[in-house]
Design a protein around this nucleic acid. Structure first.
Lengths: 350, 350
DNA sequence: TGTTAGCACTCAGGGAAAGCGAGTGCTAAA
DNA sequence: TTTAGCACTCGCTTTCCCTGAGTGCTAACA
């Protein structure tokens, strides 16, 4: 059976109406919205075809039609108008970005919140390193005879530091030498290579240093493997419950549990595309089988990628969300994509 | 009217049964649970008295009785058995604390999660500084000709650092002198005094330094006022929905919204008591008027206080929650209360 | 004076029955 | 291929009734 233009048009009407009202749409209502004059009987024939082809479903025999996931997919791929944002909408986004740009570390969380207020669906946000982080430089600062500060500079220009106390007194004059040793052997390598390495250097290392160096190396290793940069933030999760499809408490709970207590398992993009949409059963997690997710990514510095996800019912307003989210992501890239504090790489420019 | 022993006993039975089943309890059922043989008619007389005194309520004329907030309050203050934990329960808590103690900064979040699994109600966690944080020491480290690392050590022994780039070249040799200046004038003072101070020192400051120093002072000021230590973590919030009193989607949403999107407004202790309980309408926030909150605090280091809160329906199992939570808070104080890296105070011991 | 038995009364909750109405599929004619 | 007509389906809502748990009150009892 062929998917004629008219069928597509009908599908589009059904999808958009259902997005709007969450009510099934019947043949008569469709007929009224079709351009030209077509009778409801004709529409019924078309509807039967569309159902047979799997683009529409019927909640029960005597109800109107609603889109199936396959129907949404076609809508998103072909039918949806890739709307540009109105000047007003763009201004709203730009306004929300103006001002409060904080530490790189907080950009992600804020971005999620802003997106939330833009799209009016729950959102989540996270960041990922595009390539492995390594240590760029160590610095040890004396504090008093029993403690010192370890400063670790990472390849993505983050700087981390920690106060450390050791049992054996620290000889302040020895710290530069130790820093040097660390900088020589423990930079630009992945965490897993760090573990054994100190052992291998035992002939070069004064035994008294060993404990202290070990502490620093352990700390650096923990930083590299630290998953706090993988931390996921959600905003407006409770809004889920205002959608009629989640008025059912058990469904709502399933989704809420996922969004607030299992954030880490929220989907991440599987492609490099600037935007990706997962519709209902296309989601891997069971909890999301009745929801859709729109994801967009943006650049932070030259080595990180931020992610914003929007969660909603399968009938979410893809056109609006996609338009706003992609504009927002582009704006973020524009703002944070080029590091305002360029990190000079050791290898340098040719 | 007097609150006789028997009345208290009846109240206790009603409260505990209602905590257990969330169902109103009738005179007959109460009579069966009373020691000795008392007829349900007698109980009914007592119930009428207790209702009149405001300790019990009736959902409707022909239902049994349920406790009023005043009834819960009496229960918590007088009737509840302050249970000690069984050895098994204590062991469970100790086990959960063993092992993964991370950075001080993460203790709070983990503590909330652990508490969650202990009490089976949603929890929240936060930390507060008992006294104002100030900067204890600055250190500026050269990176390259246009950037340096600012290391700021705070009075609570946290160490923060940030990479900074300045337009004017940084003369590495000048950094120690700048550090010294910062350490002389910008330590041990509150953030609000920092703002103007640099201006007042303009005669002592080489003009070229000004920009750079300003950046560092601003950074330090931001750290002191940083509210990230006021960040609130919640665990298991979605569990709220499994209580019958929150099967109503709108109630559930109200509370969820509060817990996941308005965490900052969750109650904090108003007294120094190790544990505080807020019952239903005793809560200030409207969203919590039908819930109860049990809060406990513990020490982190010598200058911070962690908070754990448990949120549940008014009929929450106060006895169990209070017992577990206080034991848990005590354990946390034992673990983190004395800083394992003692921060030497400038003033020192006498 | 407190306790108990008895009794009429109340009221939420749970079906069953009935009516409504939106929407369908099918048929036959245009 | 489109349209009008028609019988049929089925989820929702409303109404009504019944049941049973639980009450308050009264009068008798210890």
């Amino acid at each position: 059976m062929e998917l004629t233009e008219r069928k597509k048009q009908i599908l589009k009407i059904v999808v958009e109406s259902y997005i709007d009202t969450a009510e099934p749409l019947g043949s008569k209502a469709i007929a009224e919205r079709m351009p030209g004059k077509i009778s409801s009987a004709t529409i019924r024939n078309e509807l039967a075809d569309l159902s047979e082809m799997g683009y529409l479903e019927q909640p029960h025999t005597s109800a109107g039609r609603i889109p199936s996931p396959k129907g949404y997919r076609l809508y998103v791929n072909e039918l949806m108008e890739r709307r540009a944002l109105s000047a007003k909408e763009q201004a709203a986004i730009n306004d929300s970005l103006r001002g409060e740009l904080r530490q790189t570390e907080q950009v992600v969380a804020r971005a999620g919140q802003m997106a939330q207020s833009l799209v009016n669906y729950p959102t989540y946000a996270a960041a990922d390193h595009r390539s492995a982080v390594t240590v760029k430089r160590y610095e040890l600062l004396p504090v008093d005879e029993a403690s010192f500060i370890a400063v670790v500079m990472l390849s993505d220009s983050r700087v981390k530091s920690q106060l450390m106390t050791v049992e054996l007194p620290v000889e302040p004059s020895a710290l530069p030498a130790m820093s040097h040793l660390l900088n020589t052997h423990f930079t630009a390598i992945p965490a897993r290579e760090m573990n054994g390495k100190l052992m291998g250097l035992s002939d070069q290392v004064v035994p008294e240093w060993f404990l202290l160096l070990n502490r620093v190396v352990e700390y650096a290793g923990a930083l590299l493997q630290d998953d706090s940069h993988t931390q996921v933030f959600t905003s407006g999760a409770s809004r889920i419950m205002s959608f009629p499809e989640f008025r059912d408490i058990d469904k709502a709970q399933g989704l809420m549990h996922f969004m607030v207590d299992n954030k880490e398992k929220l989907p991440v993009p599987t492609t490099d595309a600037p935007m990706q949409i997962l519709i209902g059963p296309e989601n891997v997690s069971d909890a999301l089988k009745e929801s859709s997710v729109v994801m967009a990514s943006y650049d932070i510095g030259d080595n990180m990628r931020g992610l914003i996800g929007v969660v909603g019912p399968t009938r979410m307003d893809y056109a609006t969300v996609a338009a706003r989210l992609s504009y927002f992501a582009e704006s973020l890239t524009r703002m944070f994509g080029k590091r305002e504090l360029p990190a000079k790489e050791e290898e340098g420019n040719p």
